[in-house]
Amino acid sequence: MIIDDQRSHFIFIYHPKVYHGKRYTVYNGKDLTNGEILQYWGKWIVLGERSWLDEMARKLDMYVEEESVPCVKYDRTPSVNLGVEECVMMVYCDKRQREDVWKILQQLGVKFKAWVSERETMEMWVPGARLFEQWIASQDFDEVTIEAIREDARQSLGHVFDHPDDIFDPWKQ
């Protein structure tokens, strides 16, 4: 199911089950814990023009519906404020199934192979990390807002690192 909410920077592809309280961060039918997310979760990166990614999304929707691919998200527009000139699609899965998902992407014409773990991603987005600070600097936030964002990031990401046995709860984007 493709979710195209204009209020979000991203377009998502979820299985409809998420609207019934089910999680997509699952492996072998089991919800992943925070610790397992850090150890196993990640995404294949696909870069290209929005029109091509829209086409990819329509094709990947089938694989998400049959749960061969857990979740996909991609940019509505390029994040030029972060130095990226094309749209980025992230095809999420557990590392233990990533080669199966890669085969799907290859069949759809993806040649560029780049896997980024969720741990690496989170480490890029903690306050003080390069990407987080780059994004903050690119926005027109006042100091109060910046500090609130930093604190929110500390709490959200800190919870994942500090509570490895809790079931992972994806945050709204």
């Binding site: 870069l47 192979k113 991603t121 987005w125």
Partner: peptide, 12 residues
């Protein structure tokens, strides 16, 4: 082997 290079933010 294949080497791929992306901008940092594309990986985030």
């Amino acid at each position: 082997d294949e080497i791929s290079i992306i901008p940092l933010a594309a990986g985030g």
